[in-house]
Structures are given as structure tokens and as C-alpha cells.
């Protein structure tokens, strides 16, 4: 083997692999093992029960809406933070990370207080017949709140690095602002947006703490998959909990694969061959 100039590869590689195996792969393996201890029929019965299916629907639908909202709002926020200089910009920049720093239970409790019957927002929305707490709308808001930083933080550096002369070139060629946004800026942001979407969506699927306070958790209507798995765990039905969790695991893998493929497609112009 050729001698390497940079030292420490065997040690560093061994350490990281060991860590990855113990902390990430072992629990996942245990999960799969537990779920596999059920027979195929039992497994299928558990994961396709009406209550479980309803929970998938609620979770995926709410996550999709929350991510779509964050896509628009997060892009706008990243745009404002990179393109303009205004007083309080740095404070706003710091506030973006708040959902990361805040314990999700705190977020859930404050959202519930805010949107409850007597809360500031809940009280204001009630006359219009809009109910947030204990509905899917509440789940969406909780999800959007906790996953907001993902889109902002993935798009922001790309936007900062965008060469202003590329936009000027498009302008000098006669492009309108809207054309430049659509044909030049958005395509260049696509890989970063995809990365942000996949992270944001994954976080929404797995969010627990912020949601359970505001969702009401009525089976079939506002019960998310993560909570259902938790309920099974509390009933000491470990294999059922593992089965439901494995569905979430598979969903996460599928989504990762899809966004990776989309990203590779969006980045095909960087290939040098």
C-alpha cells in the first residue's frame, strides 16, 4: 500500500466506524430485530391497522404542509438575511436558530398556550371559526416551528456565495426580475433547497415533543405515528412499537434516497467529464 502523507487514518477511521456502529447502527439493528421477531402476518396486521394508517396519513400530510410553508418562508427569510442590510439583521439571524435551541416540550407548551381557547392567537381566531389547538392545523404549526431553521440554514450560504455578476449578466441580457429568479437564481438554489426540504421533512416526521401538547392526540384524527409507537411502548408491546417505528425508518430511507437522486440531477452541471 502506498504510504500516505496525512497521518492517523487507521485510528481516525476505526474510531468513527466504531462510534457509528455503537450509536447509530446498533439501535437501528435492534429495532429491525425486534420488529422481525413478529411473524410477517402479525407485522403486517400491526402496521396496516386503521389506527396506524391514519397516523401515517396525519403525520405525512402535516409534515408536507409544514415543509411547503417553510420552503416559502425559509427562502424569503434567507433572502432577506443575505440580500439586505438593516438594523436588527444579526438579531433576526440569531433568532432563526431558536427552534433548535429551545427544548421542543417548551415549544409545544407555549404554542398550546398561545393557540388554546383562551390564548392570544386562539382567542383571536375563534370568532372566524378557526381552531388550531387539538387539530391538524396545530400539528402543522408545531412542525413548521421546529423545522424552520433547516431551509434557512441550507440556503443562506449558497445565496451568500452567489456571484452578483451572474444576476447582472442576466439583467444585461434583458431578463426581468421574475425571469432571473425563475431561470437563474432558483435553479442554482435547487440543490440547497432539496437538502433543506429533506432535513425539514425528516424533522417533521420525527417531531414528538412539540406536537403532543397541541395535537390533542385523538386516534384516527390527530395522532401522529411517533406517538402511536410511544403508546405501544407504554403498553409494554415492544414488538408492535418496533414495527411501527420500522415504518418510519423505511420512510426516512426512501426520502433520503429520493432527495439524493434529485440533488445529483440538479447538480449534474458541476460534473467535469
Amino acid at each position: 500500500m502506498a504510504r500516505r502523507v496525512l497521518p492517523g487514518l487507521p485510528l481516525a477511521l476505526g474510531f468513527t466506524l466504531l462510534y457509528l456502529a455503537l450509536i447509530v447502527l446498533l439501535p437501528l439493528g435492534a429495532l429491525v430485530f425486534k420488529a422481525a421477531s413478529l411473524g410477517p402476518e402479525d407485522y403486517w396486521r400491526i402496521i396496516s391497522s386503521p389506527r396506524a394508517v391514519a397516523s401515517y396519513r396525519v403525520t405525512v400530510f402535516c409534515a408536507a404542509v409544514a415543509t411547503a410553508f417553510n420552503l416559502v418562508f425559509g427562502l424569503a427569510l434567507a433572502w432577506v438575511l443575505t440580500r439586505y442590510r438593516f438594523p436588527g439583521r444579526r438579531l433576526l439571524d440569531a433568532l432563526v436558530d431558536l427552534p433548535f435551541a429551545l427544548p421542543t416540550a417548551v415549544a409545544g407548551i407555549s404554542l398550546t398556550a398561545l393557540f388554546g381557547q383562551n390564548g392570544w392567537f386562539g382567542g383571536a381566531l375563534a370568532p372566524f371559526g378557526i381552531k388550531v389547538a387539538y387539530t391538524q392545523l396545530g400539528i402543522m404549526i408545531a412542525m413548521a416551528f421546529t423545522s424552520l431553521p433547516f431551509i434557512v440554514r441550507t440556503v443562506q450560504p449558497v445565496l451568500e456565495d452567489l456571484d452578483p455578476s451572474i444576476e447582472e449578466a442576466a439583467q444585461s441580457l434583458g431578463g426581468s426580475d421574475w425571469t432571473i429568479m425563475r431561470k437563474v437564481i432558483l435553479p442554482l438554489l435547487t440543490p440547497a433547497l432539496l437538502a433543506g426540504i429533506s432535513l425539514s421533512f425528516a424533522r417533521c416526521l420525527g417531531e414528538f415533543g412539540a406536537i403532543i401538547f397541541i395535537a390533542g392526540n385523538q386516534p384516527m384524527r390527530t395522532e401522529i405515528t411517533a406517538l402511536l409507537a410511544f403508546i405501544r411502548l407504554e403498553e409494554y408491546d415492544l414488538p408492535a412499537a418496533a414495527a411501527i417505528a420500522s415504518v418510519m425508518l423505511i420512510a426516512a430511507f426512501v426520502m433520503l434516497a429520493v432527495t439524493n437522486a434529485m440533488q445529483a440531477r440538479a447538480l449534474r452541471y458541476t460534473r467535469r467529464d
Partner: peptide, 28 residues
């Protein structure tokens, strides 16, 4: 600038990296 009808060649060329050469030339 977009109505002035000038051709501008930028110092670093400012080509659109996600478009092919032909798409770059055809953009205007």
C-alpha cells in the same frame, strides 16, 4: 440595464453554471 441594449462581458465571465454553453448563448 435591461433596456439599454448593451452587451456586457464580465471579468469572471459570469456564465450561468447550470446552463449548457448553447443555453447560455441563447438566454438573451
Amino acid at each position: 440595464v435591461r433596456e439599454r441594449g448593451v452587451g456586457f462581458v464580465f471579468q469572471n465571465y459570469a456564465l450561468f453554471p447550470h446552463m449548457t454553453v448553447a443555453e447560455n448563448i441563447g438566454f438573451g
